[in-house]
Simulated assay, not measured.
Amino acid sequence: MKKLLVVSLVISNFVFAQKTKNDSLQSDLLTVTPAPIKKKEKPMPLSKKGQMFVFFGWNRAAFSNSDINFSGNGYNFQLNNVSAQDRPTKFGIVYVNPGWFTVVQYNFRAGYFIKDNLALVLGIDHMKYVMDQNQTVGFKGHISDPEYAAMVQNGQVNLADEKFLTFEHTDGLNYENLGLEKYQNLIHKKNIDLVWSYGAGLGVMFPKSNVRLFGNERSDRFHVAGMGTDIRSSLNLVFWKNWMIRLEGKAGYINMWDIKTTLNNKPDKARQDFVFGQVLAGVGYTFNTKKYN
């Protein structure tokens, strides 16, 4: 009887242990943590280190009045408070034909983010500056040629007939600059980013000035004439991951102290300084802006 009782206890303990083991295994299976679901990748906003963009657009510009000094053999004088305008090309195929892109007032930008939210931007601003022909301006100085000296009346000269002077930077008023721009993301959605930027730039003036003074042959050549500086701000709409529309405004100062007024190597030159304002818009493409986790 005792042996039977011992055998029964052993069998009972074995069955209980097996049941406990199975229950524990089932409990472990029920509490297994599911594998994390991988986040869907989204486009990065235009503001991260290593990103780049290129941009091409068109501008309108305005210029303050300026005093223009002319000097050379037999003359040294200044025209006071001279007004000028830009010269936008009539809208048409010229704006989209790559072979004619320098005809219009255009802008080019290439930017690289040297750190988050800070980009180094190379820019070319091709503006056009045309002196208003129908104006009478103040005159100060001397002219040895009696024909042109006689055109000065009561300290003023009338420029309307173009005999005394025509003066343009129309091929153009080229401001080639390097700037630093700070970027801030305003809207970040699945297919659209809106990014605001502000900054400043410094560069050289490389105009092709069209000048005809005293009936001489017109000067028309590229030349480094001075320097410029600016402050700027822009809104950048990035869509379809990489495409960009940019709207930019800027204001700046230009000082050109070596404007060529003749085609030869005579010391003839002009100098002027003025303030400018510019608005521009166009399209661009971004690089390294595709994905983040």
Rank of each mutant, 00 (worst) to 15 (best):
P146I: 06
A119I: 01
K40D: 09
N264E: 09
S209H: 02
T286L: 03
L46M: 09
V7P: 04
D258P: 02
D171Q: 15
G277F: 01
T89I: 03
G284E: 02
D125H: 11
K42F: 06
N174K: 07
L25N: 10
P88Q: 05
V15H: 08
V130I: 12
D28P: 00
A110K: 08
Y285E: 04
K290D: 15
P43I: 07
K260T: 05
F164T: 06
V54R: 02
I114K: 05
D161F: 03
F276H: 03
K115W: 10
N134T: 10
D220Y: 09
L30K: 11
A17R: 03
I231P: 06
L237D: 07
F274G: 04
I187P: 03
L30R: 13
L4E: 15
T229S: 11
H126P: 00
M127G: 02
L46W: 05
K39D: 13
V157L: 00
L280A: 15
N158T: 10
V10F: 13
D230P: 00
L213H: 01
K3I: 11
I245L: 13
E168F: 07
K266G: 15
V32L: 15
N242T: 14
D230C: 05
G72T: 00
K40T: 12
T262L: 07
K189M: 11
V54F: 10
V94L: 10
R246T: 14
N210P: 01
N117H: 11
N69R: 15
K163P: 00
Y75P: 04
D230N: 12
R232D: 02
Y112L: 05
D193T: 11
I68K: 04
K2Q: 12
K39A: 15
P34E: 07
K269V: 01
A61L: 04
M1R: 12
A110M: 11
F139C: 04
K182V: 14
N288Q: 14
V137I: 03
T20A: 14
H142C: 01
D171E: 13
F56Q: 09
F167C: 00
V238Q: 12
L235M: 14
Y175M: 05
W257E: 15
V7W: 10
L237C: 07
L46A: 01
S197R: 03
L29G: 10
N191H: 12
F274P: 06
V15G: 05
A160C: 08
L30E: 14
S27Q: 14
M127L: 02
I259M: 05
D258I: 01
E181Y: 10
L180P: 02
A150H: 04
E181Q: 11
L5G: 07
H188T: 08
S234K: 02
V121Y: 08
G282I: 00
Q272G: 05
G228K: 03
S47F: 05
D230V: 04
D193I: 01
E147H: 09
K182Q: 13
Q153I: 12
G179H: 03
N185I: 08
R246Y: 00
Y129R: 03
V195D: 09
Q153R: 08
V137F: 06
R246L: 08
Y175C: 00
A35L: 12
T89G: 02
F222W: 08
G123I: 00
V15A: 14
L280D: 13
Q78K: 15
D145F: 04
Q85K: 14
G249L: 04
G203T: 01
G123E: 15
D258K: 10
N293P: 15
L9T: 11
L122D: 07
K266C: 06
D116A: 11
I187W: 10
